[in-house]
C-alpha cells in the first residue's frame, strides 16, 4: 500500500469566472499532521470539499487511492471529516448520534466513542442544542475519533471557541487519534496555536499554493535575523521576504541564507509560522504598511 494518502496534481477549481484553487499540487504521506493555512477566501474550504468528493476539480486528485468525486461513499468510510464548528444536528441526543453513526459508518466504534466522551463534560443523554459550542465541538471530535480511519480532515474546527475549548480539542485530537500512521489536515486561522502540533504546512494564497513544506525544512530553508534599527537600511537593501517587529527591535526574514555581510549585523532567530504565513500570503498593500511599521 502506498504511503501517500493524498496525491493532488494541478488541481484547479472555479466558481463561475472566479478561480478558487489555481493549479495546486501537493502530496500527503501517512503519519503527518498538515496545517492548511490561508486567508479568508484563499480556497481552503473549496480544496477540502474536493478532497471529500463534494466539489469537482480539474486536474488529478487521488485520496487513499480513490477518486473522491466518483467514489465518495467508499472514501468517506476511511476518512473523517469535520467540516465546521457546530454542525451536529441540534435535535439529536448524544446517544442517538452514537446509534446513528454506528449504523452509518462501518468503521465507527460506539464503545470507543463512549470512552472518549466519558473524558469530557458531555453526557450521553445531553441534547446537542443544550451543549455549549465548545462541548459540541468536543462531541463531534469524540465521535469522529471513534472512527478507525486513515485520514482526518478538519476545516476551521475551533473557529469561535474560547482558548480552553481549543486546547481541549487539539489535545484530544493528538492524544486520541494521531498514532503515527494516520494523517490529519487541519485548516485554521489560529496558526500560532497549532504550530507545535504540525509536521507540515500548506499555505494557500488566493487559490495558489504559496508553500508546501515540512516544519523541519522550514527551519532549514528560512532564516530570520533580528537586528537594531541602525542596520534597518542594510537589511531592507537585501530584499527580505518580510520585515517585522520582534521583542526589542526588528527582524528580517529571508528565504534561504541571508547575504554573508548581513550575518554579523543581526542575530539568527527561528521564524515563527505566523511570520512565514504573513510573508508568503500578504497582499502588496499590507506589505507596504507592515514594512513601514517595522522601520
Amino acid at each position: 500500500m502506498s504511503d501517500l494518502l493524498i496525491e493532488a496534481h494541478e488541481l484547479t477549481m472555479r466558481y463561475g469566472p472566479r478561480t478558487a484553487v489555481d493549479h495546486v499540487s501537493f502530496q500527503i504521506p501517512k503519519g503527518r499532521v498538515f496545517g492548511l493555512l490561508g486567508h479568508n477566501g484563499a480556497g481552503k474550504t473549496t480544496l477540502m470539499k474536493a478532497l471529500v468528493g463534494l466539489l469537482p476539480a480539474q486536474g488529478q486528485l487521488r485520496v487513499l487511492g480513490l477518486d473522491p468525486l466518483r467514489e465518495r461513499v467508499k472514501l468517506l468510510e476511511q476518512v473523517c471529516w469535520i467540516p465546521d464548528v457546530a454542525v451536529l444536528p441540534r435535535w439529536a441526543r448524544v446517544s442517538e448520534l452514537i446509534t446513528m453513526l454506528g449504523g452509518l459508518h462501518p468503521r465507527f466504534s460506539a464503545e470507543r466513542a463512549r470512552t472518549l466522551l466519558a473524558r469530557t463534560d458531555v453526557s450521553l443523554r445531553d441534547k446537542v442544542s443544550s451543549l455549549s459550542k465548545g462541548m459540541v465541538v468536543q462531541t463531534h471530535l469524540a465521535l469522529m475519533a471513534a472512527i478507525d480511519a486513515r485520514l482526518m480532515i478538519l476545516d476551521e474546527p475551533t473557529l469561535g471557541l474560547d482558548v480552553i475549548s481549543r486546547k481541549a480539542f487539539y489535545e484530544m485530537l493528538i492524544d486520541e487519534w494521531c498514532d503515527g500512521e494516520r494523517s490529519v489536515i487541519v485548516s485554521t486561522h489560529q496558526v500560532e496555536e497549532i504550530e507545535t502540533l504540525l509536521s507540515d504546512v500548506l499555505m494557500l494564497n488566493e487559490g495558489k499554493l504559496a508553500l508546501a513544506i515540512s516544519l523541519e525544512d522550514v527551519d532549514r530553508r528560512f532564516v530570520a535575523l533580528s537586528h537594531d534599527a541602525a542596520v534597518a537600511a542594510d537589511m531592507e537593501a537585501a530584499h527580505p521576504l518580510l520585515r517585522y517587529r520582534v521583542q526589542g527591535g526588528s527582524a528580517a526574514l529571508f528565504d534561504g541564507e541571508p547575504p554573508q555581510h548581513l550575518l554579523p549585523l543581526g542575530r539568527r532567530i527561528r521564524p515563527s509560522l505566523v511570520d512565514l504565513f504573513v510573508a508568503l500570503t500578504r497582499r502588496p498593500e499590507a506589505h507596504r504598511t507592515q514594512f513601514q511599521d517595522a522601520r
Binding site: K74, L76, P83, V87, L88, R90, W91, H105
Partner: peptide, 14 residues
C-alpha cells in the same frame, strides 16, 4: 436550515 447538512455529508452514505 439547521446547518447539519455538512455533518450528514460527512457520512459514507449515498
Amino acid at each position: 436550515q439547521d446547518r447539519s447538512i455538512e455533518f450528514w455529508l460527512s457520512m459514507p452514505v449515498g
